[in-house]
């Protein structure tokens, strides 16, 4: 579903990763690891098509991708249900109930997003992934501010998604409790020579 070949990505005009390559089939879960600043977010944003690739190829159907970043894109004055309905409508979907049940938001449905706790907001943000109806989830630190029970809910939702032929790339530091996950340590792709980026554009 997703094939990455010899990819190089840059942040702020500086190449951070090079030679990244992996493949993702239906049902695959890839966990990205590496210290802060190694380029996990940059890689995910590049895969999502938000950033241009510096080098290499990303072969993927952009219509199958959805992205979840540090911010959840929630509107404080809309209710939980309204937030989800909006994203469902944007993606041409209608059903939001499965998402609400999956992340245990039933009791909070009519509450405004402004009145949710940080963890509840995150649960709503993750439920958004389900209403997009897309197959490939790119997630950046999805478990931030979630308690143990919610991490369990998230794991179950992710597993169900994979079982239905979905795939996911997750950047995370914690153990999701999913033994089928493949781990990719990005440290190995860290740029050594720095021969690319703005540096050389000014000199070449």
């Amino acid at each position: 579903m997703l094939n990455v070949h010899d990819l190089a990505v840059s942040r702020g005009g500086l190449t951070v990763l090079e030679g990244v390559g992996f493949g993702l089939a239906a049902g695959d879960l890839l966990v990205l690891r590496g210290p802060n600043g190694v380029g996990k977010t940059t890689l995910l944003r590049t895969l999502a098509g938000l950033q241009p690739t510096l080098e290499g190829r990303v072969a993927v159907d952009q219509e199958q991708i959805t992205y979840s970043g540090h911010a959840d894109g929630l509107k404080a004055t809309l209710t939980v249900a309204e937030n989800l309905q909006f994203w469902a409508a944007v993606h041409g979907q209608t059903a939001i109930d499965p998402a609400i049940t999956a992340m245990d938001l039933t009791a909070l449905q009519a509450r405004r997003a402004a009145d949710l706790s940080a963890g509840q907001k995150r649960r709503l943000g993750l439920a958004r992934l389900l209403v997009t109806g897309r197959k490939i989830w790119l997630m950046d630190e999805p478990t931030v501010s979630l308690d143990a029970a919610s991490v369990g809910l998230f794991g179950a939702m992710l597993r169900a998604h994979l079982a239905q032929g979905g795939a996911a790339v997750v950047a995370t530091h914690i153990d999701l409790g999913l033994p089928e996950a493949r781990v990719l340590d990005l440290t190995q792709f860290k740029v050594k020579s720095n021969r690319k980026g703005a540096f050389d554009e000014a000199f070449a």
């Binding site: 938000l50 959805t66 970043g69 911010a71 509107k75 944007v90």
Partner: peptide, 16 residues
């Protein structure tokens, strides 16, 4: 507002 709360990123990835 949409830029700050990440909604603009999500819209850019969406079919819109």
């Amino acid at each position: 507002l949409d830029f700050e709360d990440g909604a603009l990123d999500l819209m850019a990835v969406s079919p819109l």
